[in-house]
Nucleic acid binder design. Structure first.
Lengths: 334, 334
DNA sequence: AGCGCTCCCGTGAGCGTTCACGTGAACGCT
DNA sequence: AGCGTTCACGTGAACGCTCACGGGAGCGCT
């Protein structure tokens, strides 16, 4: 099929098909995009010739002339992380209803890859939405004027939009829930690996203060179930009187759940657990995870919506409209 | 920034930048792709002009002339299904190392969407990788000559490549494992919703026969954890003497695990469970799921590899090379 | 002075499509 | 017969960019 002669196998163009079928380019184009103004028999003849030659239209040439097809780049650190999976799925769905194409880039949790991706992506897509950790300067430099929507991150320059995650009220509700159940010693398994303490920890701290709870029982956890388990062990070793934990996210919470079982603490009787994110995953474990739940579907959809507004330039949402609020969703683990 | 006058806001082209900077198109091109043969000061001047005008190169025009950038389309039924998540992540990674771009299409488990996607995808990507349920005729008709690699599906025409999943040996090992543990009444929770019985059930049947086990204790399950739980209940109601179950996949197995706990059956003592797929998810539950594990990483990588071979036309793998074998991976659930 | 070299920069062509026209043939009508 | 209309098809241009050239200015060298 493919001739492997020494010379470069020149691409089959619409011209070749036209010549082979004895018609003009335009007629070929008409046949392929089945438009009017073409006779049935010649159409068939053209189609046959195209198939015969293995002709495939160039998406670039086509895209150049009809400026439809918008493609947006979705950048996430790790598709295997269920949180990003859910966001990505939501974004894909939202894009699909608009007929947009989404190129997904998984940066493998590497800052280096993120920058590399950013560099290459800009020349390949019309707009970018993603979860970035790099500096705004780098973003500014590498996106080169493309519309950008940041997820779950504050931004300080006007160049970007970002979807803010507001969990303050939800975390307060979670603490209130625990307090109402009689818990007074409430620990937190935070996400470490970041330089500064997480915003979620701040929410926890203020909520705890509001209820007169000691907010100092915090242990850093690796971003994994095993990390959550290990952190719980550390926490309980240091503070055996802890009866409830709030975690940075559901992955860590699930690890804690598992570890609690291994330690012989039954949930929620001996230990109450509340996670953050509200992943579907949390419904699979026993007992179902209580969580300060984020509407990941809305998160993805909102990001796509805003990117569309930026693309057309009409009526982009301001910061007020770009918020997703997390709410306490009781499962059985607290 | 964007003028919303009545007229269509014509795109800013390289020509506009050239005029604004008082140079030629070529010089602009040199500045942007930072090539040699350009003076430092003019380069800066061009860059400034480009930023000023909000210039963004057209990926179509660029792609048209330099025929690099290959884009492949990845079609999956549901990104939220962990199996497809893992395959997709593996494919993304494999593509990334090659510098390829991957457009992901989630068909929302709908045959209709699948066909629609197939139709639109062909003009947007260089090759297609995916998990399809439609007929080969439809595939043939809609892919229009693009290289196609099917995942986990047999094919009968020479037009396509497909990665075959071979779990025969793995399922036999699973049954052997159960038999060695003294189980004689082994049920199966199959995937229903398909017309014909699954190939995995066939593997189970032949393995059971080899060990003199009744292979008739099969219940169809919905493709979800809840479905798995419901199916287990049905199975145990009909055959209370069942002490072990093999399931169509890990999702169903996890549902069964959860249901067993609710029924007061402890795993693996009162009920042994072995799933299929070997998802990472299986390690999160308690006890960790035993499973006939597929190397999803290899699955995705292999698909990308083959699509690359088809693209270049050199040395495409035959059916023998396109197999991923599933192997029993003991957890704690059996 | 003449030659050659390097450094910058510009010009024409071409990538493969589609769009807006133009055109000839065939047909029906008054 | 003359005219308008439809049908089927072809021709130039344009989309926005890069590549392969060509060429002038400035320099040092013999």
């Amino acid at each position: 099929m493919v001739s492997s002669s020494g010379t470069e196998p020149r691409r089959v163009t619409i011209h070749d098909v036209a010549r082979s079928a004895g018609v003009s380019r335009q007629t070929v184009s008409r046949a392929l995009n089945d438009k009017d103004e073409i006779d049935g028999s010649t159409k068939q003849r053209v189609l046959d010739a195209a198939r015969e030659l293995g002709y495939r239209p160039s998406r670039f040439a086509r895209g150049l002339v009809r400026q439809d097809t918008t493609t947006i780049g979705l950048v996430i650190p790790d598709l295997l992380n269920p949180f990003f999976t859910e966001v990505a799925a939501a974004a894909l769905e939202a894009a699909r209803t608009r007929g947009w194409h989404v190129v997904v880039y998984d940066t493998a949790d590497s800052a280096e890859e993120e920058l590399g991706t950013l560099q290459v992506i800009t020349s390949q897509v019309d707009a970018v939405v993603g979860y970035f950790r790099c500096s705004e300067d780098d973003l500014e430099r590498f996106t080169r004027g493309a519309p950008v929507v940041l997820i779950g991150r504050e931004h300080h320059t006007a160049r970007f939009s970002s979807i803010r995650i507001d969990g303050e009220e939800g975390v307060r509700a979670a603490v209130a829930h625990l307090v109402a159940r009689g818990h007074r010693r409430i620990g937190m398994l935070d996400h470490d690996g970041r330089a500064e303490p997480s915003i979620r920890r701040e929410w926890f701290t203020t909520a705890a203060a509001a209820y007169g709870i000691d907010a100092g029982l915090v242990v850093g956890a690796d971003q994994s179930a095993d990390g959550g388990g290990a952190a719980l062990r550390t926490l309980l070793a240091a503070h055996p009187d802890v009866t409830a934990v709030f975690t940075f996210n559901d992955i860590i919470a699930i690890g804690a759940l598992r570890e609690a079982r291994r330690l012989g603490r039954s949930v929620p009787q001996d230990l109450a657990v509340i996670g953050f994110d509200g992943l579907q995953l949390g419904t699979l474990v026993e007992p179902p995870l209580s969580s300060v739940a984020l509407d990941t579907r809305k998160l993805g959809a909102l990001a796509i919506d805003q990117v569309g507004r930026l693309l057309t330039g009409i009526d982009p949402l301001g910061a007020d409209g770009l918020v997703v609020r997390a709410e306490l969703r009781p499962g059985g683990s607290a």
